[in-house]
Amino acid sequence: MTGTDIRNLILSAIALGICALLPLSGSGYWLSIGVTIAMFTVLATSWALFSGPTHYISLATAAFFGVGTYVTGLGFETLPFWSLIGIAGVIGAVLAALVGLATLRLSGVYFVIFTLGLAELVRQVITWFQNKSGQKGLYVLTDISEAGIYWMLLSLATAVFLTGWLIGRSRLGFALRIIGDDETVAVHSGINSALSKVLLFMVPGSVAAMTGAILAPRYVYIEPSLAFAPMLSFQVVIMALLGGAGRLWGPLVGVIPFTLLWESISSNFPQQTTLLLGVAFLIIVYALPRGFVGLLDDLRHRTRARMAEGVA
């Protein structure tokens, strides 16, 4: 571990400590914003772990998330809450592995299409089961407070960042960067590209399912159309790309402003959220192809170049 690593670690720990104090402020409004930001930080960061290096756009977040909420919804009366989070994580990982095995051998388009419909597919199947059993939704009545949810999400976020940092330094992370650059070179350098992609795709799958499990008590009442709302997948994609999926902390830079913007638009102009989503996509493609992080990099390069000129 180098000196900068230790410095970054200490700074991150301090930042985390400050974030953890939020519930003590006593403001219900900011706590609820905090939960949303923590949730999207977890989802967008884990999303970018896979989609950043591989450039595969996954729209399956809502599917994994929904599965997680259902794990809590069905199990909270019989099992301790922490074990449900673990179970959700395992189910999410297994589901991701299955999806990955079916689609990641093929081109990116197949993967996008498949993940796009996955949430809807699971939703239809669960709705059908519920109709057959005559049940409508599930009540999730627990004594877990908003602050408790917030702290759990914060711990999960920490775990995601640590995982991302470790993957970035691992052979798997390096393999994925090579695959993202040139898959042909990757396989001729001894990399099993399908296996690497499937393994890494299990991370966002598992994390999104755990996030769903943690957030289920917040909804109190869950039903398929709520748990599998496809909008979630798109929000995650936008936030991650807006921040920049190329860096571990990139998505975080997108999550905070977009969550605040989304909150204000949806409370003032609730009809216009879809339009906002569309405009955000277009801005990313045409103005910020590498996100805020890319913009920052360019600025830094330019000032450095200018300074070098000044010296010479």
Partner: peptide
Amino acid sequence: ETDSILATFGLSFVMVG
């Protein structure tokens, strides 16, 4: 592929909006 997927997604949401 990635760019056109994102751009046409953007277009689709704008149209829905």
